[in-house]
Design a protein around this nucleic acid. Sequence first.
DNA 1: ACAAAAGTGTTGCCCTTACACCCATGC
DNA 2: GCATGGGTGTAAGGGCAACACTTTTGT
Lengths: 213, 213
Amino acid sequence: MTEHERPAVTVDVFALTFLENDLRVLLIQRARPPHAGHWALPGGFVEPHEPLAKAAERELFEETGLKVNRLEQLHTFGDPGRDPRGWAISIAFIALVAADAARLIGDDEEVMAIQWHPAHDLPPLAFDHVQIIDHAMQRLRERADDLAWLGQALPARFTLSELQRLYELAGGQEVDKRNFRRWAFAQGCLEKTEAMRYGDHRPAHLYRLKSVP
Amino acid sequence: MTEHERPAVTVDVFALTFLENDLRVLLIQRARPPHAGHWALPGGFVEPHEPLAKAAERELFEETGLKVNRLEQLHTFGDPGRDPRGWAISIAFIALVAADAARLIGDDEEVMAIQWHPAHDLPPLAFDHVQIIDHAMQRLRERADDLAWLGQALPARFTLSELQRLYELAGGQEVDKRNFRRWAFAQGCLEKTEAMRYGDHRPAHLYRLKSVP
DNA sequence: ACAAAAGTGTTGCCCTTACACCCATGC
DNA sequence: GCATGGGTGTAAGGGCAACACTTTTGT
């Protein structure tokens, strides 16, 4: 097995949240070449004998301070030329996270800045990360009606209007309010809380996801 | 980038067909260690700067003589210990192929035998290939009602009963004949041919998939 | 009082499901 | 002529989509 040339192997993480009424992607600004100054998905080299999901979890935490439980494998990218340093393949993961739980304090010299970027207004990206994000948004569309999964992008408590807006952005189409509410309740993963959200107008009931062990 | 230890990177192909009224998986018998004598999915090392799908296509052809156009990426496996030779990750692909188009004449000294194995009666397998097959069968269940995709496992012309049997095996549940036919036609990917299949009993009309460019 | 978001039911339609008998051929 | 798989239609029920007005708060 030693006779074969080997590629560098990395993991990249597409982390998505719902913040300020919009879908946002977690990006870091690279401090060093290649692509110094450009924005990129958090990620890095897999360590020897490290499970891939663990590597993704670790890199995400090192670079952004974000701790995530459920990473889902998305796709593996290995096209020639995707990394200017040479032959490299990357396993991409997708995670939905609550933005309020995130401090975003990285501990990595290679990172200049960390930011939740609006998913539909992205800066120029390093490597082939545009492709990775395309795949991820596609996956999001396909799984939008898995409410228990989608809801992970929301804070612990949220209004039904927020949930609906998230659902519409993820799925790529608008839906009727009453139909949505009926459908959402029927999914059986919502729990009404006593709390209300007070704001500009009529207060809204807050809901949370039923914890699924 | 040179300072990192690198894993061996391979591809494996789960090729499925519908043969003798049953789902069958293409397996090769390994001629050399590790796991000499055991059956395994076709696959092998990715060559430097080779696109992953190309590598899978090439390895499948070298080991089994099977040419396949549409390989779909399935999942990437990288758990420690999955290869006794050391750190290795594998990108698994899934392909549905018509068995009649397959000659199964490999050109590889490492392969002792090639066979379409009944998917529900598999021999002991090398590496973590049981896991890969589990994932693949899961994917099959999820996509069973994509008829244009599923139909690739059939020969160029087939009867509706064959299609239904394939559908039931893939999806894991039986369906009513009349309902299935109505639904299958409604998918819009079937074309009736003039030909009939003559056999033990009343002849059956043959259908084919509409070619999707 | 008015602007703005929260909240709430009913109806029609289509799609899905359940279900049973005749037909054409080989032996 | 009989055994075997091929082939066909209908009716009832459930789920989905369309649709508008009242309520509650902030200003």
